[in-house]
């Protein structure tokens, strides 16, 4: 796998992804033409299939209260779109609170995760370390043996974290998988660099900060982004451990409810019948479906903004890890 990645890196950008020699002019047979047409049709079909659900949700979020035609027509009649739903959401204190809570989980989570993952990965990458094997076993046992959610719930309950924001990110603050990816990167840094630093009188902690970290910006970004995605998208832990109580700083209510965005989104989406009016109509005069669709897009926006950066890294940084899926 590593060879494949190395080879892929060496290649310049050709017209297609095949090796360059393949792009010489050759006489195409009828079968080749049919093949190329099929490939292009498949690509365009894939494009349509992926695009339509996203577009229909996007169109729905701009539906106005006075639009009476079917949603299918609404996808095309762009001139009837109004941003009422977005105005309603942005003017709603509950929605802003959920955003703040989500960001607190995101920042707390990523900071904790990196503070724990970087030293762990570095420790595991020091091959001369006596007892390294035991540390490796220590992290691999929970990785392959997962006892499920109830014992973890009892632990969080036992520590007294229930109802507090750290309960959402602490149980998942190290992903062993990310740790292994980072360790493999550290192992790839030439040992000579560390040796020469040692000769110059650096201790191990100085080596980590002065040699390893400056050389591993790419992997730290990648792993950090993967953590960020998982904390931003996490609704299960928030549902399990939070109960919508206010977050207070020195007695001052910073936000009225600590429910993050995914929980609020889930409540909005799940609302139906009587509930629909209680939960959703608080958001003003936009249609209920438009509010639902708009809140979907609002929660996806940070992810969509971050996506180009993530894409830049995941294709090179973690290809070897994609096996795990």
């Amino acid at each position: 796998m590593a060879e494949a990645v190395a080879k892929a890196k060496k290649q310049k950008a050709p017209r297609n992804l095949k090796p360059e020699s393949m792009n010489k002019k050759v006489k195409l047979t009828a079968a080749d033409h049919v093949f190329n047409i099929c490939v292009n049709i498949f690509m365009i079909l894939t494009l349509i299939v992926i695009f339509i659900p996203l577009w229909s949700t996007f169109a729905l979020s701009f539906r106005s209260n006075t639009y009476l035609h079917s949603q299918f027509r609404g996808m095309f009649e762009v001139w009837t779109w109004v941003p009422d739903a977005y105005k309603a959401l942005l003017g709603n204190a509950g929605f802003i609170d959920a955003f703040i809570s989500s960001f607190m989980i995101l920042i707390g989570g990523v900071v904790c995760a990196l503070i724990l993952t970087i030293p762990m990965a570095y420790v595991l990458s020091v091959h001369t370390l006596p007892g390294r094997k035991w540390i490796n076993i220590l992290i691999m046992i929970p990785y392959v043996f997962n006892v499920g959610m109830i014992p973890a719930y009892l632990l969080v309950k036992g520590i007294g974290l229930i109802g507090h924001i750290p309960a959402v990110f602490l149980p998942g603050a190290i992903s062993t998988y990310n740790c292994i990816i980072m360790k493999q990167f550290f192992e790839g840094i030439p040992n000579d660099l560390k040796e020469s630093a040692r000769i110059d009188g650096c201790n191990e902690i100085q080596i980590l900060f002065k040699i390893m970290l400056p050389l591993s910006k790419a992997i730290i970004m990648t792993v950090g982004l993967f953590y960020a995605v998982s904390f931003w998208n996490d609704f299960f832990h928030a549902m399990l451990y939070l109960s919508g109580t206010p977050v207070k700083i020195f007695g001052w209510n910073m936000i009225d409810s600590n429910y993050p965005l995914p929980i609020l989104l889930r409540n909005i989406l799940m609302a139906s019948g009587m509930n629909e009016y209680v939960e959703v109509n608080a958001f003003g005069n936009a249609p209920v479906q438009a509010i639902k669709a708009a809140s979907v897009f609002m929660s996806a926006i940070p992810m969509i903004i971050a996506y180009p950066f993530i894409q830049k890294y995941f294709t090179k940084g973690t290809l070897a890890g994609a096996v795990k899926g």
Partner: peptide, 19 residues
């Protein structure tokens, strides 16, 4: 094609509702 992997299932549920 890579984008939907980064959307959560809550968001996916919203998209499926619209569909």
């Amino acid at each position: 094609a890579y984008l939907p992997h980064f959307l959560s299932w809550v968001i996916m549920y919203g998209i499926l509702l619209a569909l």
